[in-house]
Amino acid sequence: MDLVNVISYSLFAIGSFFLVVAAIGIVRLPDFYTRMHAAGKSDTLGQSLILLGLIIHEGASFISIKIFFIILFIFIANPTATHAVAKAAFLSELAPWKKDGGKER
């Protein structure tokens, strides 16, 4: 097992960890506005790490250029979509969760 495989497989492991943490955060966090932290940041980072591992495993070719464009688009589009969801929820006066408020929503 040479160095390229070690680097790409460890990137796969770190990215899978971030994806599982993001999914658990979407289910477990108490409020819509807190769930967006898991969906917006951790999810984007995990996907980009896994795709970066695929680029390193593939080497310089036409396929890796396409995967690089997918990474670029995900980095632009995923936080933008999360921001749009947050703006729509805030404009429809969805109240944020307070700590002494009690139940989860």
């Binding site: 994806l19 819509f32 969906a39 999810d43 695929l54 999360t82 969801v85 929503r105």
Partner: peptide, 24 residues
């Protein structure tokens, strides 16, 4: 999801994970 925005957010997350599965 209690509100409609939770559902939109979760569907967006599932969609971007589908992109990753297609690349794999």
């Amino acid at each position: 999801g209690p509100t409609i925005y939770d559902r939109v957010l979760a569907v967006n997350v599932i969609g971007t994970k589908t992109v990753l599965v297609l690349v794999l």
